[in-house]
Amino acid sequence: MQERGGNGMAAYLVFLEQRDGILAEASVNLWHRVQHHAVPGADRVSGFVAGPLRPGALEPLFGAGVVHHAAEERLARSSETTLSRLLAALAAREAITDIVIASTSAGKRLAPCLAQATGASLLSGCVAGGFQEPVCRRPIHCGSILVACVPEAPVRIYLQDRLPQVLFTGTEHPRSVAFDIVPHLDADEKMNPAVRSITEISRQRDISEAGIIVAGGRGMGGPEGFLLLEKLAALLGGSVGASRSAVDEGWRPHGDQIGQTGKSVSPDLYIAAGISGALQHLAGLSAARTIVAINADPDAPVFGVADYGIVGDVLAVLPRLIDVLGDVLPKK
């Protein structure tokens, strides 16, 4: 179904998100996924990054290709409007067929702007890695239905949820080339909107990028209960998430909410503690690999979608679990 370029070859453009001059882990992983998938000698892979980078910031990237870097200071924190203008210009100049964007907060905001600016087909939320498959399948209606999405435009934009990492190394690194923004942004142009500042509130890896998530619900009993989950997450090298009830109670920030009105996550391991497993919560778990449930109620619906479970009080189970794991796992 998928037409690839004019002569069967794909030209990929990976949007590389930077935060404080360092590439986002999600973008680096995605770059390697694309490298892994691209046919050597036929497909082209390039990247784009805006804003000044720290020395060696591009070193984590392996593989052939070019990274177009617009290093201007004023792009250090760019809005989706600015980024989509630059990316649209680059994609047209380089005859790009497939634009791949990691589904981070910034990526989610950028992708539809870029789709509008380029007239591309936007494929988001695809399970199993949309750009790697001829047809993209994605969950809709709370994850109760899987639907195939067929792109109709010659250019496609994939907004890609987290995929398990692939090992892609070697001796080759992409070449960095300066991208000149002058034709696309006036020197004195006032950005609207303009990003003024970013205030950090949490250092944990965002749940949408996490490989391991320890999530708690109303059954955690209060914010103190989440300290146990923080401990478990630290041991496993994971991040803490929450059900809507826990967020509505004010125990966790909204950014931690998983589900239909929160984030969709795609961890390799998902631990649900004191979460009943309502349909709207499960809506965010379509791509979770192993699911583990801890719940006092043996009939809780969450056990019906879990691989492993234990019936018991979280306040009794978690401390013992943490003790046992603490003895065998190296401190992370």
Partner: peptide, 10 residues
Amino acid sequence: ETEGGVECLE
């Protein structure tokens, strides 16, 4: 919201 923080826009 952005990963781990709050972004202020004008």
